[in-house]
Design a protein around this nucleic acid. Structure first.
Lengths: 188, 188
DNA sequence: TCGTATAAACAACAAGCGTTGCATATCCTT
DNA sequence: AAGGATATGCAACGCTTGTTGTTTATACGA
């Protein structure tokens, strides 16, 4: 829906979207997503409320966009988007998702129902696309294995990020990896 | 939060909640969850809007409660809640979740973002609790396997229910089962 | 540099939300 | 059957939402 932010865009648009994003992410550190109103966002961004609606359908679309951006950055940072399937890459992927969710839980105030649900949908979409890309040359169908692996990765990462006392991440991923990898070994 | 509806309750409460539930479920067959307002629900239920808020925090809480009720019924119907872990029961569980989501997609108009997210959270909670119950006597930790299995089951069922042309359910479950069972075999 | 296109600001709108205080109806207990 | 307790009806509140029409400011091509 929203194009790559680096594209050539009217500088006014770029500025406004930047302000909205920044304002929103700052607000997430202060209060529940549920209790953030569009008014809050536009106040802090110092733009008019009507202008917000010229860029995003509602605050859920904004959350979606924001999460997508943040998660994609993490994927890019580890160049996971330009490789193929092997156990090491899978391990790194699990690690990224765990770290990402853990950071959300640390940085954002009370990630509650709606917030978590939206994050889940968004992140799983990206993980699934990535896995499908990794397995793109397989002779056999990757649909179900990729589906299961995606769900498992997210489920494990979510579980990890909700722990009161989180174990060392590397240790946790060692435990988690085989549970995910077992259905993908045929593609290694 | 809300107690068992069969409990001894003030008949007025029972009646009101029944009317709300029924009105809501009828509305879901007519329009998007997103576009159903509390007003809509109370109009059709013929109760006052303020009364609604005496029973549910908001329409999301109502959805949550409704889904919980419906799904629990399916579980009860197949007496999956009074058994232990084996492959047959697991197969039935997968089947129930697939059927349940497929029915939601058939009966409800346009199950969109918010709706789906809420269903996911609610159903996964119940599946996880059920699996944990099945594995309750295990010597080793069931946390991660149950987490992975729960996610996998839901992911597969969601995948199934989104297919344009759904394959025969039994056939699909045959394909899906081993992907879930493999991490639970140690408990059989 | 001028003119047009387009974004942003502003103001107002109907609608929904969640809450309140109070009156009325229904309940349960004794 | 009478009492107090509690659920519901009703009306109004301040607030947020998403939208619209108009004006002002900024960008960009000719």
């Amino acid at each position: 829906m929203l194009p790559n932010p680096d594209e050539k865009l009217d500088p006014r648009v770029k500025r406004t979207r930047g302000l909205i994003l920044q304002s929103f992410e700052n607000l997430l550190a202060e209060k529940n997503f549920e209790s953030i109103s569009v008014q809050d966002v536009t106040d802090k961004a110092q733009i008019n409320r009507a202008t917000f609606y010229a860029h995003f359908q509602d605050k859920y679309t904004l959350l979606d966009y924001s999460i997508n951006q943040m998660f994609m950055q993490e994927i890019d940072k580890r160049t996971l988007n330009i490789c193929t399937y092997n156990t090491d890459n899978l391990r790194n992927l699990i690690l990224v998702v765990c770290e990402f969710l853990a950071r959300l839980h640390t940085d954002c105030v009370q990630p509650h129902n709606q917030f978590e649900s939206f994050v889940e949908t968004t992140v799983k979409k990206q993980v699934f696309d990535l896995l499908s890309y990794w397995l793109r040359n397989s002779k056999i169908s990757t649909e179900l294995p990729a589906t299961v692996a995606t769900s498992a990765i997210y489920g494990l990462a979510s579980h990890y990020s909700h722990r009161k006392k989180r174990p060392v991440l590397d240790r946790f991923v060692d435990e988690a990896l085989p549970l995910v990898a077992i259905n993908l070994e045929q593609f290694a």
